[in-house]
């Protein structure tokens, strides 16, 4: 009797939390319906596609193809494409939770009015993350459709890949939310951007990690993007073994850690 009561209260409060975070995400959906923002949204999708064409196809003609760990031979485009989805999920989630969160907080002062409502600071951050994931998922769907049409993967594999792209977004969203609370000024974003570029270039995106010597290889295998790329590439090329669970576990762990640290920090920052 008492447990049902407690459980129903917990469920009710979780539902209210969910509703309030959704309301924050809804604000962005509403804003996105206005014209100027549309271009920004569309442009976010175009970038990974351009990289795929330039590096995957253009440079790919010079590279030839790669043989994956399980012996599958893939074209360079099929090798690079999954990495582009992972990187796009990273960039979207990080941009929304660091730069845009900071801008909305410090310059647009958007949250000053939100904290006066029942919405808690952490729910604001969750709502922004939810929006980032939604946006990222739309990009992923579009990109997977193109990959399927170009014969770089199959429809079923693409379907299996979609949740993995959301997981990558969630992991980077968690990291981004912590970074977002640590920002002091716009200059700090230069450091984040360099970190992103370094991961984008070296996390097994354009060439196999086996090509690196031991120390750089260990460092790159610690980055979350490495695991994101490995997971998504395993799914789109359908060449994986049990180690894929390690990638999933790593990303879940990063997401959980990031969100729990951010939960504590956002409150202190928005309500001094």
């Amino acid at each position: 009797m008492l447990t049902t009561l407690v459980l129903s209260r917990v469920a009710a409060s979780a539902a209210a939390r969910g509703q309030r975070s959704t309301a924050v995400a809804w604000r962005n959906v509403t804003a996105a319906r206005h014209s100027a923002y549309w271009w920004v949204l569309v442009s976010g999708f175009v970038e990974p596609l351009l990289y795929l064409l330039s590096i995957g196809v253009g440079v790919g003609a010079l590279v030839g193809g790669f043989t994956l760990a399980d012996g599958t031979r893939v074209s360079y485009a099929a090798y690079v494409a999954p990495a582009m989805i992972a990187a796009s999920a990273m960039n979207g989630a990080v941009a929304e939770t660091t730069m845009n969160f900071f801008g909305k907080m410090k310059y647009m002062r958007l949250y000053d009015s939100v904290i006066a409502t029942p919405v808690a600071p952490f729910e604001i951050a969750l709502g922004e993350l939810l929006w980032a994931l939604l946006r990222g998922a739309m990009y992923s769907v579009a990109f997977l459709v193109i990959m399927t049409a170009a014969g770089l993967t199959t429809p079923l594999r693409a379907l299996a890949t979609l949740p993995a792209t959301v997981l990558v977004g969630l992991a980077f969203g968690g990291i981004g939310m912590v970074l977002g609370t640590l920002m002091r000024s716009w200059q700090d974003f230069d450091y984040i951007a360099v970190g992103q570029v370094a991961m984008f270039l070296f996390s097994g995106t354009f060439a196999p990690a086996e090509g690196y010597s031991l120390v750089p290889r260990i460092i790159l295998e610690l980055t979350p993007l490495y695991h994101g790329v490995a997971l998504i590439r395993g799914l789109t090329t359908w060449s994986f073994d049990w180690s894929i669970l390690g990638h999933v576990g790593y990303l879940v762990g990063v997401a959980w850690l990031g969100l729990s640290i951010a939960a504590r920090r956002t409150g202190r920052m928005l309500c001094p």
Partner: peptide, 11 residues
């Protein structure tokens, strides 16, 4: 929209 979006924060 400033009103409708805000009202959603109150559920």
């Amino acid at each position: 929209e400033n009103l409708t979006v805000y009202a959603r924060y109150f559920g």
